[in-house]
Nucleic acid binder design. Structure first.
Lengths: 132, 132
DNA sequence: GTATTGTATTATTGTAAATAATACATTAAG
DNA sequence: CTTAATGTATTATTTACAATAATACAATAC
């Protein structure tokens, strides 16, 4: 269910957190689906229960899951999670674009690239190649 | 010349590296401009020479500066650095957009947002608000 | 030859992630 | 009510790495 990269600079708990959020937003995990118990998942992944708990806690903090002592952890409303995810992604996107423009990238080239990628599905489009 | 945030999660040497690359790509530093000596900059910033050296080494690794023992460190061709920067930024941008779409964001909404931001300068535009 | 510069090495310190080992709290099941 | 399973919290330890400190070496300019 989860894939960990121990060589990554990203902490394990962040990797877990990110992947879990993606599963929720991507619809793989449905509303009220029960997540593996902290100890169970820790066993499966070969990590410490505290590490899994940290990931679960962060997911709950942003409202993507709900954890209840004695019962377990459950996926909350996917629509709301999707909203959270969208907001986050658009924030990242805006920051990246602002920084790019601030340091000299041509806004029109950015629009052309994004359009080619999103509208025409031309994922091979490379704005740094003059052939376009 | 450089501003360090000691509370940041980013290591000092990465902050230095990033800021130096921006100065080069942004045209503040011209071709063949000599950078401060490792020891000098370390003194000015109140950090260890090794930390500065690490930042310089990384800038040289990607070809943005050239360091010569006994002479100093110098800005290399800004056009090439800009190319490198553009390639990197567009790679990040594509990855972010692909991931966003993969997990449900509407490609048209992305295009609209990017267009509003880049073409119209409407940095307040929020694609997650229905008022638009 | 001396000073300045970049580079390399070794040891030490500080911080944070991750682990380990428990303990406590709540819920479900019997 | 007892037991098991669950989430949560705490403390100590280990580990990794950034950063420092103190040198040493290498190449260049004067």
């Amino acid at each position: 269910m989860f894939v960990l990269d121990y060589r990554s600079k990203l902490p394990i708990y962040e990797q877990l957190q990110t992947q879990m959020m993606k599963l929720i937003v991507g619809g793989v995990l449905k509303e009220n689906d029960q997540l593996p118990a902290v100890r169970t998942l820790a066993m499966e992944l070969g990590v410490n229960p505290n590490t899994v708990q940290k990931a679960y806690a962060e997911c709950e903090r942003v409202g993507m899951i709900v954890s209840v002592t004695g019962k377990g952890s459950f996926v909350s409303n996917p629509a709301i999670s999707m909203q959270l995810y969208m907001k986050e992604k658009f924030k990242e996107l805006k920051t990246l674009i602002q920084e790019s423009i601030e340091y000299g990238l041509d806004p029109n080239i950015i629009i052309n690239a994004v359009t080619a990628w999103c509208e025409k599905g031309e994922w091979d489009y490379d704005p740094t190649q003059s052939s376009h």
